[in-house]
Write a protein that binds this DNA or RNA. Structure first.
Length: 567
RNA sequence: UGGCCGGUAGUUCAACUGGCAGAACGUCGGACUUUGGCUCCGGAUGUUGCAGGUUCGAGUCCUGCCCGGCCAGCCA
């Protein structure tokens, strides 16, 4: 259904299968018009761009129907979980621009209720305590072609199961000695239905419940019930939980639950080219020292993207744009980058910075004179105003903007050529000072005093406008340039180790950059455009460090790339 | 190997449930421009996984096959 109600002339994208479902439920009055979702992360790591997709989906779907979306921590396994992760996750969600409805909740808030339901299931003869160890349970589960073997404990009496379960809770058994299992069907074609484990014994303190419990519910035993307790209507999760839906429904059907029954819907998780999102691979990068930490600007973690200068708006628009489907695909990272560019183009202030300086001496500039040129802060936004940029007889320009022997289609400076200095004058290169190895040391140039308005009175044209920084006023800076973290579009494809395609050139640190004085006043974390170079985020800690968020579209770079490929 | 889910431009998604296969990003070309940026205009790109069948008509329905993903944790 192509729902294209126009909003300021921009057609909205058609409804995806989840939104269709929500709409159909509302039309049928399934939940009395109520829509409630939740974002249910386990607090055992830092969220990445993949989590952002789930965050956006859950919050947006609820908001579109005047519904609610909660943040619920799925803290059913104390191993590896920590309050610090929970804080980081909540912080990242806030940064993305979402505010969870109601209080932040936890699966552990429901441990007592869950336990009561477990006793209920035992009472119904639908759950039993199994004495078999993990290895035996695994071995007797059978496989895709052979049914499992029923445990000898499967037909214990309700009374015995009840007292055993209570003893489990009371801590009278050690880890792994017993489990509570649902009594479903050991020959079920869905392996998850072959008497799944509901409780396991773990004598580990939980970051919220401390030592109150030594039995912990599994994901399946906790998730649907948590949804039901909270009144969730649409429980959205990723595709790999598809097979779990049957179990999700089974538990819900056999429990005396309050309210309407929630339903689970699965969507494809987000994958991006040239990066990885699995926690295991991410930690491997950190452990091996290939990146600096969870907030390394090369990482797809929300903390990394934030430090890199990705605006939350761009991430949200990206997530809205890719939509949701049931196909597992890989999105090109270029698409995400295009949203980042589009956002910053509208909002980032323009500044001039020279990354690899080459000295220019203007021979006809009056000795000692300094002129303050007015430069627009953002041509896309008249309200951004103008600033002063000091201009003098000694400038830094980009080494890449000069060539001794320019090839075809190189429009910039060369001996005898003239270019425009952005917000300055026309500049002509008359002479080149070279060193012993014929390396270019310094350019001797002249400027045209009549071109201060950007045009020559005689009407002559220049092909290029280049950026510059006055040498006497330049501020020293360090710049981090980033490239793809992995050279392969899909690292680890065909079973190889993803780290094999780690790109050692993924970060290039440039020491002696020269930037215009206005940059000293850029607040930490803010993103500006270095004209012609890209968008750069000022580091939040090191005041002289700028991270390149993303480059500008670069036609000259494309030409060079094509030439190299044709060679 | 059994079950489930999926397969539409390079990529990600549409196609009003059987009626002329489209959009975005990318790409190519042009216009504009004091950023080789932005903006605007235009072009190219498809055996709709394959083979049959039903139908006036199939991306859509049926059958068979092929390919990919998920499932045999006391992880989530």
């Amino acid at each position: 259904m192509a729902e294209t109600h126009e909003d300021e002339g921009i057609p909205t994208r058609p409804l995806d299968f989840i939104r269709e479902q929500v709409r159909a439920d509302n039309a049928a009055g399934t939940y009395g018009g109520r829509v409630q979702t939740r974002f249910p992360p386990e607090p055992n790591g830092f969220p990445h761009i993949g989590h952002a997709k789930a965050v956006c989906l859950n919050f947006e779907v609820a908001a579109e129907h005047g519904g609610t979306c909660r943040l619920r921590f799925d803290d059913t396994n104390p191993e590896g979980e920590d309050a610090a992760y929970a804080e980081a996750i909540a912080d990242d969600i806030a940064w993305l621009g979402y505010e969870p409805d109601g209080p932040v909740v936890h699966a552990s808030d429901y441990f007592e209720e869950l336990y009561g339901w477990a006793e209920h299931l035992v009472g119904e003869g639908l759950a039993y305590v199994d004495d078999q160890d993990a290895e035996t349970i695994s071995a007797t589960r059978g496989d895709f072609n052979t049914p499992g073997v029923e445990s000898g404990c499967r037909d214990r009496s309700v009374e015995e199961n009840l007292s055993l379960l209570r003893a489990m809770r009371a801590g009278r058994f050690s880890d792994g000695e017993k489990v509570l299992r649902a009594r479903i069907d050991m020959a079920h074609p869905n392996m998850l239905m072959r008497d799944p484990v509901m409780y396991r014994i773990r004598h580990i303190p939980h970051f919220r419940t401390g030592d109150a419990w030594c039995i912990y519910p599994t994901y399946d035993w906790a998730h649907g019930q948590s949804d039901a307790i909270e009144g969730v209507t649409h429980s959205l999760c990723s595709l790999e939980f598809d097979a779990h839906r049957q179990l999700y429904d089974w538990y819900l059907e056999h429990l005396p639950l309050p309210g309407d029954r929630p339903r689970q819907y699965e969507f494809a998780r987000l994958n991006l080219t040239h990066t990885v999102t699995s926690k295991r691979k991410l930690s491997a990068l950190i452990t091996d020292g290939l990146v600096d930490g969870w907030d390394d600007p090369r990482l797809p973690t929300l903390r990394g993207l934030r430090r890199r200068g990705y605006p939350p708006e761009a991430i949200r628009e990206f997530c809205a744009h890719i939509g949701v489907a049931r196909v597992n695909g890989v999105h090109e990272i270029e698409l995400l980058e295009s949203f980042v560019r589009t956002h910053h183009n509208r909002h980032a202030l323009r500044r001039m910075a020279v990354l690899r300086p080459l000295e220019v001496v203007i021979d006809n500039w009056p000795e000692g004179r300094v002129e303050h040129r007015r430069a627009v802060n953002n041509p896309e936004d008249p309200d951004a105003g103008e600033r002063d940029v000091p201009f003098s007889g000694r400038l830094w320009i980009e080494r890449d903007d000069f060539m001794l022997d320019p090839p075809r289609k190189f429009y910039r400076l060369a001996p005898g050529r003239e270019v425009r200095l952005r917000a300055g004058y026309f500049l002509r290169c008359n002479d080149v000072e070279t060193g012993p190895d014929s390396e270019v040391l310094r350019l001797r140039c002249t400027y045209d005093p009549d071109t201060g308005g950007g045009q020559a009175p005689d009407g002559r044209k220049v092909r290029a406008t280049i950026h510059w920084v006055s040498a006497d006023h330049a501020v020293e800076a360090r710049v981090a340039l980033y490239d793809r973290l992995f050279t392969d579009p899909v690292p680890g494809a065909d079973g190889r180790d993803p780290l094999e395609s780690y790109n050692p050139a993924s970060r290039e640190l440039i020491g002696g950059a020269k930037v215009e004085p206005a940059l000293a006043g850029t607040p930490p974390g803010e993103v500006v455009q270095f004209e012609r170079l890209g968008y750069f985020a000022r580091d939040t800690e090191a005041a002289d460090l700028f991270h390149r968020t993303v480059g500008l579209r670069d036609e000259w770079a494309n030409i060079q790339k094509r030439r190299q490929q044709n060679r």
